[in-house]
Amino acid sequence: MVALPAQWPPVHLMNWHAVVLHPAHTVADAVVAQLERLGLTVSRRWPALEPADAEADVVLFDADMGHDGQFPWPAGQAPMPLVALIGSEAPGRIGWALTQGADTHLLKPIHSSGVFSALLIASHAFEAKRRAEAEVRDLRERLTRRQAVVRATLLLMQINGTSEPLASRQLRSLAMEQRKTIEDMAEAIIANPGRYGAERRRLSQ
């Protein structure tokens, strides 16, 4: 089961600015009309977004005629939820929409129902993706800094002549005292090991 955010629905659509990237067509008219009915402020763009559109809360883009270079950010790194507007279900087109980072899609022709669900699903998927990315970034960083933790523990063992469990405990309590992550503390020890040896002796006196 996937937990919903505490506040559901999570989006305040009245405050949202949507950008619709689609050639002039009844499809674009229908999307804009429906977004406006839902209370959003809407801008139309074609053939490309403008740099300021990076501030938009959601972008709905044409998957049929869309091409690289329409977005002011690298493919797959949109700073907001994306909704692909799909007419042709050819895998090449769907694949292109996915590489842009589409969080959900709407099929053409656009009906009065569907747009609201797409906004909720896209924003939920986008938030989940952003959280997961942040977590992965954090874990990855910790992983690369694990070596620092090992080195700092070994240094503490050498300086103070203690066992590994004791050195490990010392590293954790130092991190807590100085309000640092274990990894930051470990790097501080590596940068200036002598200081922590002295501290250890002072503490033990």
Binding site: D64, S88, A90, P91, G92, R93
Partner: peptide, 9 residues
């Protein structure tokens, strides 16, 4: 357009 894109894919 789609014919060429997809047949080439």
């Amino acid at each position: 357009y789609i014919w060429g894109w997809e047949v080439n894919r």
